[in-house]
Design a protein around this nucleic acid. Sequence first.
DNA 1: GCGACAG
DNA 2: ATCTTGTCGC
Length: 271
Amino acid sequence: MNDDKEATSSERNCSTEFQSPQQMDWIRIQDSLKRQLITEDDFKWRLPSTMMNEREKEGSNCEILLKYVGGVDLSFSKEDSSIACGTLVVLDFQTLKVVYEDSSIVRLHIPYLPGFLAFREAPVLLELLDKMKKNAHPFYPQLLMVDGNGLLHPRGFGLACHIGVLADLPTVGVGKNLHHVDGLTESRVREILRAADSPENVLPLIGDSGCTWGAAMQSSHGSLKPIFISVGHRVSLATAIETVKMTCRFRVPEPIRQADIRSRERLRNHQ
DNA sequence: GCGACAG
DNA sequence: ATCTTGTCGC
C-alpha cells in the first residue's frame, strides 16, 4: 500500500527480457507502425538550390520549393512535472522567421521511459498538427523537425518516426543527448569525431552491427557537444542532415529551438 | 549479474 | 525534462 510512493528500479528499468505488459504492447505498436516507415526521400518539394547541389539527378521535376518547416517540443512545469506544454511552430525555411505558433497545456498520465517517449509526447503534438490540417492552414509544414530521435532508437522507431507515420509527414529527428544503441556511446562518438581525417563536422553514427543509425553533428562553431540527427519518415539521412544544416543558427536547429523557447514561455505565463 | 537508456 | 550566475568570446 505504501510502497508505491517511489517507483522501484525494477519498474522503470526493465532489461529487454522482462518488459511489463504495457511495454510489450507498446513494442508491438512500434513494430507494427514501423512497417509503414519510409526511410528515403519521398516528398513533392525540393530544397532551395545551394551552391553545392550534388544531387541533380531528379532535375527540375518539382517546381515546389520547401518553404514551411515545422518544429515541435514539450516543456514541463517544475512544480508539477505532469503538467506539460506542447508547442508547434512553423518557420519560413529561407528567412527562419516564425510564421505560425500554437500550443496546448495538458496533463500527462504516461511516464517517461527510455525507448517509449512517443507514447508520452506524441499525442499532444499530433493534435496540434491535426488542428492545423483540419483548418487547411496554408502554412501547414512540408517537413517537421522533432525534438527526439527517429531511427536512432532501440527498435529503430523513435518519436520522430512515430509522429511522421501517424501524421503522414516527412520528419527529421534531432537529439541533444545520445541514446545508447548498438554499441554507440559518447566515448565512441568522441572517438569517431576525433578520428575524422577530413574537417567534417558531420559524421555517420555506425553501430557495432555496421548499421548507420544517424549522424553526429557539431554545429555553430561554439559547442563541442554534438547533436544527433536521424531519419524520421519520408526523408533520407542526407536530406535530414542538409535541412538541419540549413536551419542551424545555434546548436539546435531553429524550428526546434523556437518551439522550445515559446513552449517554456507559454508555460511561465500560464502559472 | 550490473549498468546504460531520447525527453 | 527541470533547478541556475556569471562569464568568456565572436
